[in-house]
């Protein structure tokens, strides 16, 4: 079995834990450093109590990681996702994670006023929506919750493998 198919199957069969025990790639190491920030931004954009599912309940951070670390993903955007989060941490002097909702809102809206920040937030929005509204096989549209909220459903046949078997 090709390594990638193994990984994809692994994630479907709940083997993610085992796979995470594998040695980290350099991307994975960089990702770990900003993971909490990325997660917090996603959760601020898609909070609990909204009419659409929350980032937290749909575990969109995993989708984001799976997507940008996929070898077919644009390598420049992969880098940008990490660097934009580092920039947010830097701008807020490492305090973003400890801010309350109102403070986070102000920090992100100020970041959005910069061209760089606006592009980065757009990218995170896209990467989160792709998780929430893509086929459940990708992991963040759990039990079709994203589709149910919009009363809009993907067509058939549904994918049996991620990105079709490459």
């Amino acid at each position: 079995m090709k390594r990638r198919n193994f990984l994809l199957l692994g994630s479907m069969l709940g083997m993610t834990h085992y796979l995470h025990a594998k040695p980290s790639s350099s991307f994975e190491r960089s990702f770990k450093k900003v993971e909490a920030t990325l997660r917090a931004v996603q959760e601020h954009m898609f909070p609990q109590g909204s009419k659409i599912p929350s980032a937290q309940s749909m575990h969109t951070i995993q989708f984001l990681f799976d997507t940008v670390s996929h070898e077919t993903y644009d390598k420049d955007i992969r880098k940008f996702v990490i660097e934009g989060a580092e920039e947010l941490q830097r701008r807020e002097k490492g305090k973003f994670l400890s801010m309350n909702t109102q403070e986070k809102e102000e920090a992100l809206r100020t970041y959005e006023k910069t061209r760089y920040g606006s592009n980065w937030l757009s990218r995170i929005m896209t990467l989160t929506m792709e998780g929430l509204f893509s086929d459940p096989i990708y992991g963040s549209n759990k039990k079709e919750a994203g589709w149910k909220a919009l009363n809009a459903y993907g067509g058939v046949p549904r994918p049996r493998t991620k990105y079709i078997a490459l």
Binding site: H44, M45, F46, S50, I52, E105, S118
Partner: peptide, 16 residues
């Protein structure tokens, strides 16, 4: 500007 938070949920469900 991006719409996010609960406002996004309102907007999307209305739209769809």
């Amino acid at each position: 500007q991006l719409v996010w938070g609960k406002a996004l949920g309102e907007k999307l469900t209305e739209r769809f």
